[in-house]
Design a protein around this nucleic acid. Structure first.
Lengths: 254, 254
DNA sequence: CTTGACCCTCACGCAACGTAAGGGTCTACC
DNA sequence: GGTAGACCCTTACGTTGCGTGAGGGTCAAG
């Protein structure tokens, strides 16, 4: 069992040489080698690779990535959360860049000549400050950063059980409503859906109604989610989806 | 007149070394040198630098950038348009990545174990195809690409006058409506605003109502636009803004 | 006429791989 | 059981886009 370099390469889109490189510098060494010296990557290795590629995509150097992943207190969820946050920042930056270009296109169309200063003011509003800030935030004083990171991670270790429990409790309550025959598009069911949304927003990310709808749809279309939710009570996934949709409609109608 | 390396560096956020490098490889050589051998950058040099940085941001290599900018048929507008398009693609890709991460966070929260394949399927939906496609589209067969580019560029050279004229005609008509006392939030004024939006969409980019609102706001807050528009008729900028807002309200109310 | 703040040209260094070169390994099919 | 073809290994030099000095001119201010 396990994957060869070529298989990993095909699976992930990186080249074999890259995997060799990561092995060379100790960033990702396969858990095993065959008798002939072939690299064998385990599932755990691939999870690590996914995190590596995520951080790489975000512009971290391989050395930085190694340090980030060396933190024993940070688990998969912590990394996902951090990457999610950084991606949102990027999205914001990209949006501003697009606006800047649209501005310049408008100016060009009207025949307005922008001076050099104006050009780079428009175009640079996101670059120097945002980028510098980002760099400092992510990796400013290496010591201070790691200390705070450790704290956040230990928080989430504690919170972890609490999150799981809260989630389960909520599912339990929704299942009870369903069992009691409460319609999915009734007030109390919608309130439960709203609680569900709030819970996600509190622990993970700002969950808009749009995103919430997407999640609800996923709960019934992706069998892994469906099965998992239906473990609490059969049919719960569908019921929850309907409540989510009704709740989103209610909120967005205003 | 002209800017020294240090000034350009401060203005644009790149380092002096980078400017030296661009000079070395012939990507951006300052138009002039002082008697002492100091580099002097002109406004035209800075415009070129802006385009260079735009393409660099988008991931093009310096060599590719040199080739792109070498096309004599492509003017500033063509580059802006291309960069705008590529940025929109990037935005889409980023959005998908964020969705993928949200999916995995949800899965993690529910305790669903994703296999390696699933993980990279989710995470790789945008990477291999999209990126390869992008790379081919942008620089696939160098010859074919340049040929098509030239056509697009020559189109836009021809179209250019037409665009200008159409724009001016439309402004003229709006000015006439204003002079005739047609209220900015009346049907005919809104229709003119809608025409304005359609014109932008046709020549430049998909101009949503949201973006159109932003443009309208800019017309009255940025004095350069205000003055330019008011050249057709005093007060036109404000009138157009009001019509745009009314039109957007009408369209989005549905 | 000197002191900073700039500017110049070499020139070496570095990250993150790409790209052979030269050579074993493994399944498959004859 | 031999050999073709796909796959794997290590070694090592090449490339891109600059960073980072070293050593030395230039220029406005006091």
């Amino acid at each position: 069992m396990g994957y060869s370099v070529g298989e990993v390469a095909r699976l992930t889109g990186v080249t074999v040489r890259t995997l060799h490189h990561y092995d060379e510098i100790g960033l990702l060494s396969p858990g095993e080698r065959t008798a002939a010296g072939y690299r064998r990557y385990s599932e755990a290795d691939l999870e690590r690779l996914q995190q590596i590629l995520g951080y790489r995509e975000l512009g971290f150097s391989l050395e930085e990535i190694a340090e980030i992943l060396a933190d024993p207190a940070a688990d998969h969820m912590v990394h996902l959360r951090r990457q999610h946050g950084l991606l949102l920042e990027r999205l914001e930056r990209l949006r501003k860049m697009i606006e800047a270009i649209e501005f310049m296109m408008e100016a060009e169309q009207m025949g307005i000549k922008l001076t050099a200063q104006e050009r780079f003011e428009v175009f640079g509003d996101f670059d120097p400050d945002q980028y510098a800030e980002e760099a400092e935030q992510r990796w400013g004083d290496s010591e201070a950063y790691r200390e705070s990171q450790r704290r956040v991670a230990s928080y989430s270790k504690q919170d972890w059980l609490q999150i799981k429990e809260e989630t389960n409790r909520l599912y339990q309550r929704i299942a009870e409503a369903m069992a009691a025959g409460v319609p999915a598009d009734s007030e109390p069911a919608m309130d439960l859906a709203e609680e569900h949304r709030a819970q996600i927003s509190r622990w993970f990310y700002e969950c808009t109604y749009e995103i919430h709808r997407g999640l609800g749809e996923m709960y019934v279309t992706d069998h892994r989610f469906t099965e998992n939710i239906d473990k609490t009570a059969p049919g719960l996934a569908r019921y929850l989806r309907d409540a989510i949709v009704a709740n989103a409609d209610r909120a967005q109608a205003r």
